[in-house]
Nucleic acid binder design. Structure first.
Length: 271
DNA sequence: AATCCGCACAACCGCAGGAGT
DNA sequence: AACTCCTGCGGTTGTGCGGAT
């Protein structure tokens, strides 16, 4: 609840870590683990705040960190996961063994975002609209960058991250943007919301899944890995889609299928 | 050789949730 | 119930490096 007290900055070092500091931190954690980050620097004899130690360990010193540049497969996975999850870097990182949320965030902002923007502006993008049905459980939105976010039921922290989200639009549409390598599905509505249980993001995406689902639903393929897409009715234009909102809205079996098969979502490959 | 500029990445900051009291 | 403490997350900033001028 309460906010963490400001790190007492007096006497604490900031900035890049030295090799010696790294060694102290590594040896201390190897010996004692890190049951209490706040107390760790004091016990280890480091002039750093616990937060800094934790970050250094998690993002750089952890033995299972995979250093080096990202493979094409990893980059494709990040792009696709970002389409699905938005800026939930920690969730994305959980799907990429050896990579940290910070690293993925950096790669996204320096490489992938630009690549995506370039790609979308230079390629012939075909857009098709979809209708969206109202469902139960949790609301699902997409922000400006096509990322998935959840509005009213989100935590304040998550809501904060949606600050640049455009306000509600009148239409009730999903827009699918087909590019050469993957498909982006975009919601443009605040009134007709799709609902997905919160556990979907953390639990189901990390579980072991089979491949049955992809055989009976829309699928996008990235580097040989199939990803299920939301099975919604393809519409040729907005007017037509508006006329069909009613029928689609009543077709709850679509969402029933989604939630039924969530457990069968294919897991991402390990790199 | 010096300077500028952009990129990549490490690190920091502020906020919020959860556990404990 | 209210408060504090700790941890984790995501956005942002700082810094070093290499290439261009």
């Amino acid at each position: 609840m309460g906010r963490a007290p400001c790190c007492e900055k007096m006497g604490l070092k900031k900035g890049p870590w030295s090799h010696d500091e790294d060694q102290i931190l590594i040896s201390y954690i190897q010996l004692n683990g890190h049951p209490n980050w706040r107390a760790l620097p004091k016990h280890a004899g480091l002039l750093r705040c616990g937060k800094s130690c934790r970050l250094r360990w998690i993002n750089y010193l952890r033995p299972d960190i995979k250093r080096g540049s990202f493979s094409k497969e990893e980059e494709d996975s990040i792009i696709h996961l970002h389409e699905l999850l938005g800026n939930r870097w920690s969730v994305i990182a959980a799907k990429l063994p050896g990579r940290t949320d910070n690293e993925i965030k950096n790669v996204w902002h320096t490489h992938l975002k630009k690549r995506l923007e370039t790609h979308q502006t230079t390629s012939n993008v075909s857009k098709k609209r979809f209708t969206m049905s109202k469902c139960t459980t949790k609301a699902l939105h997409f922000d400006e960058s096509d990322s998935v976010v959840e509005p009213d039921h989100k935590t304040p922290n998550e809501k904060r991250n949606m600050s640049n989200q455009p306000s509600s639009s009148e239409s009730s549409t999903l827009t699918e943007v087909a590019t050469d390598s993957y498909v982006v599905t975009k919601v443009e509505d605040n009134e007709h919301e799709a609902f997905i249980d919160d556990s979907f993001w953390s639990d189901e995406l990390s579980g072991d899944q089979g491949d049955n689902f992809v055989k009976s639903n829309l699928v996008t393929k990235v580097s040989g890995v199939e990803f299920p897409m939301i099975p919604i009715t393809l519409m040729e234009d907005k007017d037509e889609s508006d006329q069909n909102i009613g029928s689609v809205t009543n077709d709850m079996s679509i969402w029933s299928d989604i939630f039924t098969h969530i457990e069968e979502l294919p897991d991402l490959p390990e790199f």
